[in-house]
Design a protein around this nucleic acid. Sequence first.
DNA 1: ACCAGCCTTTGACCTGCATCAATAAGGTGG
DNA 2: CCACCTTATTGATGCAGGTCAAAGGCTGGT
Lengths: 251, 251
Amino acid sequence: MLQSRRIDQPEPAPQRVPKASQCATCVVRNRAVCGALSDEERERLGNEGRTVNVKRGQTLLWEGEDAMLVANVIEGVLKLSTSTSDGREQIVGVVYPADFIGRPFGERSNHSVTALVDSRVCIFSRASFDRFARQHPDLEHRLLARALDELDRARRWMLLLGRKSAMERVASFLLELSERLAASGCEDTTGPLDAYEMPLDRQQIADVLGLTIETVSRQLSALRAGAIIDTPSRRAIVIRDRAQLVGLAGD
Amino acid sequence: MLQSRRIDQPEPAPQRVPKASQCATCVVRNRAVCGALSDEERERLGNEGRTVNVKRGQTLLWEGEDAMLVANVIEGVLKLSTSTSDGREQIVGVVYPADFIGRPFGERSNHSVTALVDSRVCIFSRASFDRFARQHPDLEHRLLARALDELDRARRWMLLLGRKSAMERVASFLLELSERLAASGCEDTTGPLDAYEMPLDRQQIADVLGLTIETVSRQLSALRAGAIIDTPSRRAIVIRDRAQLVGLAGD
DNA sequence: ACCAGCCTTTGACCTGCATCAATAAGGTGG
DNA sequence: CCACCTTATTGATGCAGGTCAAAGGCTGGT
């Protein structure tokens, strides 16, 4: 069977930034769900929220526990993960700046949310966010649009997990990251990145792709040997031949 | 690699029932998204929709094509599926009565929708449904709740596809069906069914679980040999020892 | 600088599921 | 009731990727 997994250690609670949110200057205010609101409304929602720094490895929400909060990602990358009772883990989503975290209109969180790199999020109590959302149809509309996009993405991921080979999975993943990291930068989107810093370690890549760390490593080595990518350091990825990589992603 | 797949043959277009929808007596009117509307509003939405019969095997929406319609399932079971360019197929969702089909607020459908058994759905043009939804926040709220539930379900499915063994997958699937088929019957829900008719053939089960038809067959035989289930006919499932089956589902 | 403790890579081997192939069991029309 | 066809089961074999084990490489602390 699959190897078991180290458990993410409990960590000190995320550090609250004393100052209340400054929505007016928030870098993600337009792309996040808040973008649906007028300045005045956004300010009102902002008063119910707080900006919080989350260090790499810290967990914001635990699988199975009451999901008391929701949040917008301002900066950083976080993973959503579930595990079987015997410790096999699967990462079911990776979120970037402007993405929404949590389960509005639901009691419990179905997956843990953990920072992959030092991140900053804007949190709300679920109850107050739910109340606010119900009174602001435009906000709910943005939430819906986002949920539908996530659903499409999750389903594409199901094709990868159910039907793709190890090499196809790794190639697909490197390409997806190259696109999403480019889109999450606020700069004018100049298309997918050919060089980026990998926010996941090898174990986490394996957990996204439903593989083992060794298999991931071997596929990366093979791509390096074929001069299709380069990995100048552990966490750096350089795509040298995107066309071939696309071919290997196979869909 | 994985075996290739027979293509669903193009079929005659779904048959339109001449009579306009009779929302007032619709068996799923409360559980479907329409349940958010008043009688009067529902009637108004109903005037834009039509009831359509879809025969087993007929496809309502094609992957990659413009998604011109959305629908509510009134009766039956349908699959949502995607495939790789070389024909490997993955079923990414199975929908039951009261479930919603299609991609509101999106241009193209990311998966095909095909009837697994003779079904009846209530269709709307996407454009008119979108317009109506934007004017009815309660309807969008129900859509959002549904999308979030689907997302949770898809993510639990990702754990299955990424990390579970063949036996765990088959056991999980039999249990999920036993619950969802019970819930989709309009009768007072008396808990999960211990006997039901399997709406999928072996190939389709394999396509849901990311396995091959032979592996599915072997797991079912093993379960039968262990007196955990019985399969009195091809499409009949009887759960004889639910506790053990739950144990084998492993999560 | 140097050491300790990861994380990653690589190699050797094994196993669960895919693949290939042959029957068997329903189902359908004549 | 039989011939034919589709779908499911069972068996034999192979291989992709998992498991086990042993080196490397970074990194951070003193």
